[in-house]
């Protein structure tokens, strides 16, 4: 099975080398389980809310009903996955996707503490280095010009107050 998976790389380029195949059936099961988890969350949360009556529903009625419906759909998807043959494997872990996702997490973490310009500047520089594979002087120039453009467009023209951090 694994030989067959490795023989069919669906992702192009060297960055795709980081990607690992996940058998479709297992992936589908994980997603169905996650949906079931979300359904359980809504059902559990709604139990702490006034339910009202069937005729006059309270704030807990809708989330409860939706949670039950979602749980049923998740189970139905699970059952279908079990009854059908698995499709092509799904490749997860592409290098560029991971880098962008991690860099965005970094922005979310530092946006207010470091300030928008420092946070977004570092983010831009990392992406230009890793994704565009630009020379350092181009990265520095692109990042600098980009942040000036951000300042002009958002702060000067649109009046958006961005956090400046300690700087």
């Amino acid at each position: 099975m694994s030989g067959e998976l490795e023989a069919r790389p669906s992702i192009e380029g060297e960055q795709g080398a980081w990607a690992r195949p996940l058998p479709n059936r297992i992936g589908e099961m994980i997603v169905a389980a996650a949906l079931f988890g979300a359904a359980a969350f809504f059902i559990w949360g709604s139990l702490y809310l006034p339910f009202g009556g069937i005729g006059l529903p309270g704030p807990g009625f809708f989330p409860f009903a939706l949670g039950v419906a979602l749980a049923l759909f998740a189970l139905a998807i699970f059952a279908r996955v079990l009854s059908e043959p698995g499709g092509d494997p799904v490749y997860l872990g592409h290098r560029d996707v991971l880098v962008v996702f991690a860099a965005l997490g970094g922005v979310a973490l530092t946006f207010e503490t470091l300030g928008a310009y420092a946070s977004l500047g570092a983010f831009t520089a990392i992406l230009l280095l890793v994704l565009a594979k630009s020379a350092l002087w181009r990265v520095a120039l692109g990042t600098g010009l980009g942040m000036v453009a951000v300042w002009v467009a958002f702060k000067v023209l649109l009046g958006v107050q961005l956090p400046t951090g300690p700087f």
Partner: peptide
């Protein structure tokens, strides 16, 4: 235009847009 240059531009706009 290389996608590697487009992505940071689009994402910076997105982050500021969402925050604002």
């Amino acid at each position: 235009i290389p996608y590697g240059w487009l992505v940071p531009i689009i994402l910076v706009i997105s982050v500021i847009g969402v925050y604002s």
